[in-house]
Write a protein that binds this DNA or RNA. Structure first.
Lengths: 116, 116
DNA sequence: AGACTATATGCACATTTTCGCATATAGTGT
DNA sequence: ACACTATATGCGAAAATGTGCATATAGTCT
């Protein structure tokens, strides 16, 4: 139960939904999330952490970068179903399109260069 | 987006998940929810209102009673999928079993008789 | 080692959420 | 109209949440 609540709570925030929609496009490091959503570094990092804690996302280190990706397997029962719901949602939502646009121009350049 | 967040937010609370699991058993008036979950009247009413606002639940008046039920049709795209996720979840969760047990003994007797 | 980088996190603060209490509202029945 | 009932809701308090700022942590490179 605790677990299920945590899973839904993770999705009950616009920032985190936007992050997941971006990660459904492709895996990203934190600074790419910052650029795609145009948000601060701590905000990106913290919300990625919450998504990871709920089981939506996994991370791996790649040099200085932490790369986050949708956890396609491993997901506990509900998570997989919820990812599918998200995959089909918000397909024409303006902010999601913007995020995708910015993502396409994002580079692994680090927050120093972005100053958010 | 606003709508999607509202839907997930509605599920991000243990009380509301318990209510939905009870309503998946059968429709209930507010006082039956109070008895099944062993919670106060205002708590039952308010959380039912939130579930209704998010589209999970519909209500009809039946004399003095307001009867709440899972909104099987009408549900906007995601809601139906989420109901299905819930239907398959928590099948052996202790608190859910207790709620169901208390529900089976609940009667339309009104909060006056329950004093919660 | 030291300088530099990307990411995580402690802290403070504002906002939101949840809930109980008391009361308002709406319907029933005399 | 009046008494009574079930449910909704305004208000206040406590707790939880989201975020920015500054700093800590962890890794790279010379």
């Amino acid at each position: 139960m605790r677990e299920l609540v945590k899973v839904f709570r993770a999705l009950s925030d616009e920032t985190r939904i936007r992050i997941l929609k971006v990660l459904l496009e492709r895996e990203c490091c934190v600074c790419e999330i910052m650029q795609a959503l145009d948000i601060s570094q701590s905000r990106a990092s913290r919300n990625l952490g919450i998504l990871e804690g709920a089981g939506f996302v996994k991370s791996r280190r790649e040099g200085l970068w932490m790369v986050y990706a949708i956890d396609e397997q491993a997901m506990n029962s509900y998570v997989a179903a919820l990812i599918e719901v998200l995959r089909g949602s918000l397909v024409n939502e303006e902010i999601i399109l913007w995020d995708r646009e910015r993502l396409s121009r994002a580079m692994r350049v680090g927050p120093r260069a972005i100053r958010k």
